[in-house]
Design a protein around this nucleic acid. Structure first.
Lengths: 197, 197
DNA sequence: GTAAAAACTTGCACTGCGTCCAGTTTTCGG
DNA sequence: CCGAAAACTGGACGCAGTGCAAGTTTTTAC
């Protein structure tokens, strides 16, 4: 499923990625996003500022980017969805799976986006990681005539996820979040189940 | 309707706002977003860099912020929507009115968001101007139990607008854009017409 | 095992955004 | 006309993000 052990270089890279990420989450969790500089994170993680930016394209990305292994597992999931599943159903499944993988970071992310508007707008960019892939995936699975429909399916799903994140109380169990998300997807998707409305 | 002539101070402020805005749109339209600095815009508009930031909170904002007069007209429109209009219907009307006021800038915005990803993520922030107001407006108009529903209505409408902007061809007449938007709103809203799905 | 090649890290310098502040000019109310 | 309030200015600062020429480590080929 996941490549066991590649070369030393690959393993070191992944380790570095995770060290930087966890260091950043810890520091930012302690002091807040604006009170921690990239310099701070790099120093604490034992790398140079330059190296930080070779792993993450921006300071915000360290909060929202996915672990490479997660990305890979997630790509494989996309490939395994049968072609005959209706677009909205497929999208729903993917959204729920994706949401489930956010379990550990979601509380911190909610807290931070509430604090600083800088992070808040970047939070929408969370989707930036998936958006192009998903867009391509959906477009490939739908006839040319329904390209608008495919885009609408994606954006509506994003809206449902955003709403669920917004509505979920951090103190409630994570399962509640998934339930809210299921409801949102069902409500928002009622009109999208069939390609031509 | 709109205050005719307030003090000289107010008029000068509005004039300065519009000068900065139009200068920025011209320069950015000519050279591209990244090739124009705030310094350039300020110099060309005849103000200092500091003053630029007293009118616009960021470089991106100069592309997406609404003319103060438009904002005011738009607030009045919100107040005039009767309370007995269903939530989704009201939202649809507002979205369409809002979209109509984008007529002149949309082509430039589409061109720029396609060029640079910096602008693209900022484009989502367009809604930042309206989002809090609309959120408050919708929440006020719906019972506490339906707060999730209200948020979903808003986010879904945003999704519809985003999709329509994405799907519209800049070379087609603006009316086509509104038609696509109407379709998107209808499809996406099919499940939202009734508070409890 | 060793040497060349490729990939990664590092420090440094640079541009540009956004903020702060102290001093000046402009507008408003009386 | 005058004092207060608001707006503009220049300069300095911190930090994000990029480019580059080193130096170091891993891989590859022999």
């Amino acid at each position: 499923m996941v490549d066991a052990v590649q070369g030393l270089r690959e393993r070191k890279k992944l380790a570095a990625w995770r060290t930087i990420r966890s260091t950043a989450l810890r520091l930012i969790g302690e002091r807040g996003f604006d009170a921690v500089s990239v310099e701070d994170i790099a120093r604490e993680a034992g790398v140079s500022r330059t190296t930080f930016f070779s792993y993450f394209p921006s300071k915000e990305a360290v909060l929202f980017d996915l672990d490479p292994v997660e990305v890979q597992r997630w790509q494989e999931m996309l490939d395994q969805v049968p072609d005959d599943v209706p677009l909205w159903t497929a999208m729903t499944d993917v959204a729920l799976a994706l949401a489930a993988s956010l379990a550990d970071r979601l509380p911190l992310q909610k807290r931070l986006t509430a604090q600083s508007p800088d992070v808040c707008s970047a939070a929408q960019g969370t989707c930036d990681t998936f958006y192009p892939d998903l867009h391509e995936w959906l477009t490939r699975r739908s006839p040319d005539a329904d390209r608008v429909h495919a885009a609408l399916v994606l954006n509506t799903a994003v809206a449902a996820v955003a709403t669920a994140i917004e509505a979920w109380d951090v103190d409630d169990p994570f399962e509640d979040f998934l339930q809210i998300l299921r409801d949102c997807l069902r409500w928002a998707g009622a009109g999208l189940a069939h390609p031509v409305g």
